[in-house]
C-alpha cells in the first residue's frame, strides 16, 4: 500500500503532507509526556519492532501472502502517540533508505497508514475494552476488531484522497467497493495477527499493553504454558 510518486496530484499530496506533519506534531509532546526521557529509545525500539513485524509473512490463499501494517498493534501496545510516531518513522525510513514509497507521496502514506489506522483503531479498542467484561478474551477480541477495521479505514482514506486528487478519473463506486472488499480480507489477517500478538503480550507482561492499562487482567485468567510463546 506504499503509494509511489505521481499517484496523487501535487496539491492534494501537499495537503496530505500537512495533515501528516500536524498529526506528528500533536503526537511528539504527548509521547514525550508519556515516556519522559525514555521517549527516543522506547519509540525507536518500537519502530524497529514494527518494521520487523512487517516482515512476518503468512500465507493467505492461492500462493499470496499477507503481512502486518502494524498501526493498530503499535497503538494498542505503546499508546496512540508513541505508536503513531513509530509507524510514521518506519514509513519515513522506508521511503528514504529503502526507496519504498515515493518521497512526494510520504504525506499520503503517513496519513493513510499511520494516522488513520491509529486514529481509528485506538479509540475503537478503548471503547470495546471498556464495554466488554474485563478479561483477556475481551482484550483479544477488541484487538481483533479494531485492527480489522483499521485496514479498510486506511484503504477508504486512500480512496478519498484518490477521489479528490487521483491522477485518473475512475468510477468511484466500483473503486470503493473493490478497495473496501479487498481490504476487509486483508483486515481479517491484520486482525488475527494483532489479536494473537496482543494476547501473547497480555499473557506474559500485561503491564506493557498500554491500551489495557487500568484493567486487572492477572486475576482474569490463569497463565497457560503454551500461550506465552516466549519459548522460542
Amino acid at each position: 500500500m506504499h503509494a509511489p510518486d505521481g499517484f496523487i496530484v501535487g496539491p492534494i499530496a501537499l495537503a496530505a503532507g500537512a495533515v501528516a506533519v500536524g498529526g506528528v506534531a500533536v503526537a511528539v509532546p504527548r509521547a514525550r509526556r508519556q515516556l519522559d526521557e525514555r521517549a527516543a529509545p522506547m519509540a525507536g525500539l518500537v519502530a524497529a519492532f514494527v518494521f520487523a513485524a512487517q516482515m512476518l509473512n503468512f500465507p493467505v490463499a492461492g500462493g499470496t501472502s499477507g503481512h502486518l501494517l502494524g498501526g493498530a498493534l503499535a497503538a494498542i501496545l505503546v499508546g496512540p502517540y508513541a505508536g503513531l510516531l513509530a509507524v510514521a518513522i518506519v514509513l519515513l525510513v522506508q521511503a528514504l533508505v529503502f526507496a519504498d514509497g515515493g518521497l512526494t507521496a510520504l504525506g499520503v502514506n503517513v496519513t493513510t497508514m499511520a494516522l488513520v489506522t491509529v486514529v481509528v483503531a485506538y479509540p475503537l479498542f478503548r471503547l470495546l475494552v471498556r464495554t466488554l467484561p474485563v478479561s483477556r478474551a475481551s482484550v483479544t477480541a477488541a484487538a481483533f476488531v479494531s485492527a480489522l477495521v483499521s485496514v479498510p479505514a486506511s484503504a477508504l482514506a486512500f480512496v478519498l484522497l484518490f477521489a479528490v486528487g487521483g491522477a485518473v478519473d475512475i468510477p468511484l463506486g466500483t473503486f470503493t467497493a473493490a478497495m473496501g472488499g479487498v481490504h476487509v480480507l486483508i483486515g481479517i489477517g491484520e486482525g488475527l495477527i494483532t489479536a494473537a500478538a496482543v494476547a501473547a503480550v497480555v499473557a506474559v507482561r500485561p503491564d506493557l499493553v498500554y491500551g489495557a492499562r487500568g484493567l486487572d487482567l492477572r486475576a482474569a485468567a490463569p497463565l497457560r504454558g503454551g500461550e506465552a510463546a516466549g519459548a522460542a
Binding site: 524497529a48 512476518l56 503468512f58 500478538a197 501473547a200
Partner: peptide, 19 residues
C-alpha cells in the same frame, strides 16, 4: 492462515523483547 496464530505469537514475544 490457521498457522498465522503461531507466527503472531512470535510477534508478541518479539514486542516484549524489543520493549
Amino acid at each position: 492462515l490457521g498457522h498465522a496464530r503461531v507466527v503472531a505469537q512470535s510477534a508478541g514475544a518479539l514486542f516484549i523483547r524489543a520493549y
